[in-house]
């Protein structure tokens, strides 16, 4: 940004109280934002577990949500930095394209599901199916994840500082899973891989970006054994 442009740009902070105002009005206001808008700092109060808070934002604004949210918070985010001061319900940041979503508490099921890009940071635990069918997102979970996490994950990185539940990385494609704790079990076609310098650099950068205090050397890398990519006629009898 040039200094002249910087002088022209005034950051305008907006406070939106969902205890008093309607969620739909918030969505309309967020969807009306343009990249030129001065309203770049949003503070959302009293979400009270409502669903679909700050969904479909397509501009690089900051959104701070003060409390627990319900289903699909920050879904389809494309460029915003969204912080949740609490827990998130199922499907937080599902189908994110870009930007950052930071959950300060725990996340429920299917966090970051099908997301194409951006960074999802979860300070607490994520429950089942974290990163299911992820397609390029980076997810850092500072606690543990539940069963079937990274199921059919296609690309991107899932970093888990704690443990993982049953069937981690089942039917995995080319996403990378870094886990510092112990997976209860690996899913079909998921196996431990040898970490390269390139992998270590990816992991170190994600730990740094998400403020996670962990040593790269503590992690193991899991990836696809690539045996499920093609149909094998020898298996025909199994069906």
């Amino acid at each position: 940004m040039s200094s002249a442009l910087k002088e022209m740009t005034r950051i305008e902070a907006v406070t939106f109280d969902l205890g008093k105002e309607k969620l739909r009005d918030l969505s309309v206001a967020l969807h009306a934002l343009t990249p030129q808008s001065n309203q770049t700092s949003w503070h959302i109060l009293n979400p009270r577990g409502q669903h679909a808070v700050a969904v479909g934002v397509t501009v690089p604004v900051g959104i701070h949500i003060d409390g627990h949210v319900g289903y699909y918070c920050a879904g389809m985010n494309d460029g915003a930095v969204i912080t949740i001061e609490g827990n998130a319900g199922p499907g937080v940041a599902e189908n994110m394209m870009s930007g950052i979503v930071h959950v300060k508490g725990d996340a429920s099921q299917a966090a970051g599901a099908t997301a194409h890009g951006g960074l999802l940071i979860i300070d607490g635990n994520a429950s089942a199916r974290c990163g299911i069918s992820m397609k390029g997102i980076d997810i850092v979970v500072k606690g543990s994840v539940g069963h079937m996490s990274a199921f059919m994950a296609q690309s991107g990185n899932l970093v888990i500082l704690g443990d993982a539940g049953e069937a981690l990385g089942d039917s995995l494609y080319e996403a990378k899973i870094f886990c510092a704790g112990t997976p209860a079990s690996l899913g079909a076609d998921c196996e431990e891989k040898t970490m390269t310098d390139e992998d270590r650099a990816i992991l170190a950068a994600l730990l740094e970006r998400s403020g996670a205090k962990a040593d790269v050397a503590a992690f193991k890398l899991y990836g696809s054994a690539r045996t499920l990519y093609h149909f094998h006629v020898d298996n025909a009898g199994a069906y």
Partner: peptide, 18 residues
Amino acid sequence: EYRALVDLPGISKAKLFE
């Protein structure tokens, strides 16, 4: 859902878990 718990007394200090 958490929405059902939101008006319980002292919920902001409750231990929440799935």
